[in-house]
Design a protein around this nucleic acid. Structure first.
Length: 691
DNA sequence: AATATCCGTATTTTT
DNA sequence: TACGGATATT
């Protein structure tokens, strides 16, 4: 609110100019033509982009002719809100904003027919692609009995790498999957079938959304119309885009060259998704007469935090040509805390978090960052035990859970009755139905479009009107399925449909899954999410493209009003900032992750990841390092092992920290247990005192 | 042909 | 540990 008042106080001049430094202003007020902004961490990148949007709109560009491509949907929303505040909310309302994938999805719903794509196509997520790969592998009887044939996830990964890096299959295999090189032919066969099958069924995977978009811009009659839709294109996080995305941008700028890309090569952390820094380096080649602006003044962090961050990134063999500097004074040096083990680390984090809150920093302005989703497991238990509320970003796999996928598959069948994968999944839930029977049923229903199939008779209709014969035990469930589908064929809101489908799932889950109660409860969550949507199609597309990725998205609204601590993978923390940042598990094997120490490029990416984590902090930064890890490996001995401080904190870097060691401090368990009784008394009394 | 059982293994990051 | 894959059983 204060911020809003502040904004309007400066409204006399175009307010988007307020508080911009000369470089930022140059970027914001740049005229026509390509513009590349190299923006170090915390240099006001978001502000600059938002101001640029406001500037364009103020200058008379129709908002629906502006395209803002960001890394997450959330980032787009945030920027547009900000731009709205700078220029009067209604005027930025129609800017196209979102990820490449979501914008591709939107455009293809409208113009896909030019590519022979029906508007009700469905979007597959990563694990769906893997499942389809598996289905085809079995169908083609490839990789059967062979020893080292890639697993389904690996197949999907290889495919995606080939597409996104636009590299030939044998080359990808040689470079990244040498143990599969001999199977190149079989793999190629599967990929060909995979492509054909998706096409047949009007199903697109994530990569297709980009490929089809690109094809739309290059090869179709819709080309001119789509190509001229946007007068200005703005791209955020350009260092994390891949080759196909760069192609799209080039195709998108056939009519004019109004493109602005913002990025930081030191923060590229998505090469596992085929993102390449070359996009930044080659930008001036792709777009002639590029203006380059560099933002180096950091407004986020205090100088001691930047000193550490700069020192870490300076360790990269390929130097990044900027040093961040800040005018922000105050704040102590970052802390490096050595802990005995993970338990002590969790304990210490809790203490520090609460301390900071005592000193006036809300939980919301603090974050705990870690390399992988499960790194926070221990801490989460500890936080729960102490009643410290938190929301976790990243690493959450709500929509990946089998039972959630089941319901989504049901919705997909209703939306696109030729979605073979969805049918295959659902039919096998029925008692006595396995792969073979499922295939037979699907044939009966004519799920696969055969040339002679009548176009109107949908497999769903056929299921309702001419139910296929199946073995006795499953008949009731199949009938119930037909009824459930029949009830959902109308225009009932998605939430109502989810509720109806859940009723079908309940008895099935009891038979099929371990703890059905928990799973059914998840479906209620799904229902809640569905209630935010008007159409089933939008709901499932969003579930795939923009799944709930924090525990907060899942919790009811009440939690969001309260104060809560942020827990986040470093990847999900990209673009965020907090007053106090705690980085845990700063041990070799965690950062860099054991899985990524294969070659130097991977290790360097891990370094940048660590750099991203450090530069999220505004005022206080605390890095934790547990000395001892307990393994629950089956191995005969070694119940624990000793870790080393992450290699990215060299002696030189280490000297920039204030160090604290908790070794030798008594084990935290003891006092905690001793006080348990006391806590009970406190709770008891608090209860009594409650008004 | 479906399901039960067992064994082994690998274990990230995300649109 | 939990899941996937392969084998054994119904």
């Amino acid at each position: 609110m204060l911020e809003r008042m502040f904004d309007s106080a400066l409204d006399t001049a175009p307010s988007y100019r307020a508080g911009l430094n000369p470089q930022q202003r140059a970027a914001v007020e740049h005229g026509e033509g390509p513009l590349l902004v190299i923006a170090g961490a915390g240099t006001g990148k978001t502000k600059t982009l938002a101001a640029r949007v406001a500037h364009l709109v103020d200058g008379g560009v129709a908002s629906e002719r502006i395209l803002l491509l960001t890394f997450t949907r959330r980032a787009a929303q945030e920027m547009l809100e900000r731009a709205g505040r700078l220029t009067g909310a209604t005027r930025t309302g129609r800017v196209w904003g979102g990820t490449f994938h979501s914008v591709g999805n939107r455009l293809l719903r409208t113009f896909g027919h030019a590519l022979g794509l029906p508007p009700n196509f469905t979007v597959m997520d990563q694990s769906d692609s893997a499942d389809l790969m598996n289905l085809l592998r079995n169908e083609l009887e490839l990789g059967r009995g062979r020893k080292r044939f890639p697993k389904k996830e690996t197949l999907a990964t290889i495919y995606s790498r080939v597409v996104n890096s636009r590299t030939k299959l044998p080359d990808v295999l040689d470079a990244d999957f040498p143990w599969c090189s001999e199977e190149a032919e079989a793999i190629a066969t599967i990929f060909t079938a995979y492509t054909a099958r998706k096409r047949e069924q009007a199903v697109l995977d994530f990569d297709d959304l980009l490929l089809y978009w690109h094809a739309l811009l290059v090869h179709t009659k819709a080309r001119a119309e789509v190509g001229s839709m946007f007068e200005h294109v703005l791209v955020d996080e350009y260092q994390d885009t891949n080759g196909v995305q760069a192609d799209i941008l080039r195709a998108l700028r056939a009519d004019n060259s109004n493109i602005m890309a913002v990025g930081d090569d030191a923060q590229s952390i998505y090469s596992f998704r085929s993102a390449t820094v070359r996009n930044i380096l080659d930008f001036p080649k792709h777009f002639s007469d590029t203006t380059i602006v560099k933002l180096e003044e950091n407004y986020r962090s205090t100088q001691p935090i930047l000193d550490v961050s700069n020192a870490v990134i300076a360790g990269a063999p390929r130097r990044y040509e900027k040093d961040l500097w800040s005018q922000r004074t105050g704040g102590g040096r970052p802390q490096l805390v050595t802990c005995l083990d993970e338990a002590q680390q969790s304990d210490e984090v809790c203490k520090q978090v609460l301390d900071a809150r005592e000193r006036g920093t809300n939980l919301k302005q603090q974050a705990v960052l870690f390399r992988t989703g499960h790194h926070s497991a221990h801490l989460e238990i500890e936080l729960t035990r102490r009643n410290i509320p938190f929301v976790k970003f990243g690493g959450l796999k709500f929509v990946e859970a089998a039972h959630v996928k089941d319901v989504v598959a049901l919705l997909r069948i209703l939306e696109n009755p030729h979605d073979e994968l969805a049918w295959f999944r659902i039919l096998q839930l029925i008692e006595g139905v396995g792969p073979a029977t499922a295939s037979r049923i699907m044939e009966h229903l004519e799920v696969r479009r055969s040339g002679s199939a009548t176009p109107d008779a949908s497999p769903v209709r056929r299921l309702i009107e001419q139910p296929p014969p199946i073995p006795q035990p499953g008949r009731t469930e199949l009938e119930a399925l037909a009824e459930a589908c029949a009830d959902c064929l109308g225009d009932a809101p998605p939430a109502v449909q989810v509720e109806r489908l859940r009723r079908w799932c309940e008895p099935v889950f009891v038979r099929v899954y371990d703890n059905p109660a928990v799973r059914v409860a998840d479906l209620v969550q799904l229902e809640r999410i569905a209630s935010g949507y008007n159409t089933r199609g939008r709901f499932i597309a969003d579930l795939a493209l923009d799944p709930p990725n924090s525990t907060g998205d899942l919790a009811g609204p009440p939690l969001l009003d309260e104060d809560y601590l942020n827990l986040s993978t470093i990847h999900s923390a990209k673009g965020c900032e907090w007053d106090v940042v705690h980085v845990i598990h700063a041990a070799d094997g965690m950062i860099p992750s054991d899985m990524s120490t294969g070659d130097e490029a991977q290790i360097e990416e891990e370094r940048r990841l660590f750099y991203v984590a450090l530069t999220r902090a505004k005022v206080d930064l605390c890095v934790y390092f547990p000395l001892r890890y307990y393994h629950r490996r089956m191995g005969l001995d070694d119940p624990h092992s000793y870790a080393q401080l992450t290699r990215f904190v060299t002696d030189g870097v280490r000297a920039l920290f204030d160090e604290r060691s908790l070794e030798g401090t008594e084990e935290p368990e003891l006092p905690a247990k001793e006080y348990e009784g006391v806590e009970a008394i406190t709770d008891f009394l608090a209860d009594l005192f409650e008004v």
